[in-house]
Computed example of a mutant assay.
Amino acid sequence: MSAQFISIHPDNPQVRFVKQICQILRDGGVAVLPTDSAYALCCMLEQKSAMERIARIRQVDKHHNFTLLCRDLSEISTYAKVDNTVFRLLKNNTPGAYTFILPATKEVPRRLMNEKKKTIGIRVPDNAILSAILDELDEPLMSSTLILPERELAESDPVSINDEIGSITDLIVDGGVLTPNPTTVIVFEDSVPNIARYGAGDTTPFE
């Protein structure tokens, strides 16, 4: 069985398609969705079997750090501990191509957080399709950048993604060919930002 392939307008996503995508996710599906940095494998937080499928597709172990895709700052504060200093930095730099590593709250399932540090990676992506999906779902998605085994770059072309993994995913959302820029990763330790990876997001505010 092959994945559903939905081509959607990149700037004004059609509501009927957004609802269709969300239903597949709610039903436990593994979806390939566009972000502001490349395509990502996504599923709902409570869907443990979907998460395990994503790990198999990526060929990563149980220690792989997944990232929560959030709509906005208020959603971030449900899943991560954010003080006033961190909040201001996030407010000024979201949405955008950043992954923020923050201390996780009790709302985050243990299987999603870093075992030793009890942290979680969180993003507010700047992509109209993904924003519409997150608004409709009214909760975050779990995600992992779509980097296929033995490859270094994230996948950016939905047609070739369909050829490669259409048979082992439930949905591929075509948001056009993207530029595979990785996110800038910012780790907060005691509210102090440290740049762990330089990527698409401007690092100036965190230096």
Results as ranks from 00 to 15, higher is better:
residue 1 M to A: 09
residue 2 S to W: 14
residue 3 A to I: 07
residue 6 I to Y: 10
residue 6 I to M: 10
residue 7 S to W: 12
residue 7 S to F: 10
residue 18 V to T: 06
residue 18 V to M: 09
residue 19 K to L: 08
residue 21 I to E: 09
residue 24 I to M: 08
residue 28 G to S: 13
residue 31 A to V: 00
residue 31 A to N: 04
residue 32 V to N: 03
residue 35 T to W: 06
residue 36 D to W: 03
residue 41 L to M: 11
residue 46 E to G: 15
residue 48 K to G: 04
residue 53 R to G: 14
residue 58 R to S: 11
residue 59 Q to K: 15
residue 60 V to A: 11
residue 60 V to Y: 07
residue 61 D to R: 11
residue 61 D to I: 15
residue 62 K to H: 14
residue 64 H to F: 15
residue 67 T to N: 11
residue 72 D to F: 11
residue 72 D to H: 14
residue 72 D to L: 12
residue 79 Y to D: 06
residue 82 V to C: 11
residue 85 T to I: 15
residue 88 R to S: 06
residue 88 R to G: 03
residue 88 R to H: 05
residue 89 L to H: 08
residue 89 L to A: 08
residue 90 L to E: 03
residue 93 N to I: 06
residue 93 N to C: 13
residue 94 T to N: 00
residue 98 Y to H: 04
residue 100 F to Q: 01
residue 103 P to Y: 05
residue 108 V to A: 03
residue 111 R to K: 00
residue 115 E to G: 01
residue 118 K to N: 08
residue 119 T to S: 00
residue 120 I to D: 00
residue 121 G to N: 02
residue 123 R to M: 02
residue 125 P to A: 05
residue 125 P to T: 08
residue 126 D to W: 06
residue 129 I to M: 07
residue 132 A to M: 05
residue 133 I to H: 04
residue 133 I to A: 00
residue 134 L to W: 04
residue 134 L to Y: 03
residue 135 D to M: 12
residue 136 E to D: 15
residue 137 L to W: 01
residue 139 E to W: 04
residue 141 L to G: 02
residue 147 I to S: 08
residue 150 E to I: 04
residue 154 A to E: 05
residue 154 A to I: 06
residue 154 A to V: 06
residue 155 E to Q: 15
residue 155 E to A: 15
residue 155 E to H: 14
residue 156 S to A: 14
residue 158 P to I: 02
residue 160 S to K: 13
residue 162 N to R: 11
residue 163 D to L: 12
residue 163 D to S: 12
residue 163 D to G: 09
residue 164 E to F: 09
residue 165 I to F: 10
residue 166 G to E: 01
residue 170 D to H: 09
residue 171 L to C: 03
residue 172 I to H: 07
residue 173 V to A: 09
residue 175 G to S: 05
residue 176 G to I: 00
residue 180 P to L: 15
residue 180 P to E: 09
residue 181 N to E: 14
residue 181 N to K: 14
residue 187 V to M: 09
residue 187 V to P: 01
residue 188 F to M: 05
residue 189 E to S: 00
residue 192 V to R: 09
residue 193 P to Y: 12
residue 194 N to G: 08
residue 194 N to V: 12
residue 194 N to E: 12
residue 195 I to G: 05
residue 197 R to G: 06
residue 201 G to W: 00
residue 203 T to I: 10
residue 204 T to Q: 06
residue 204 T to F: 04
residue 204 T to R: 10
residue 204 T to V: 06
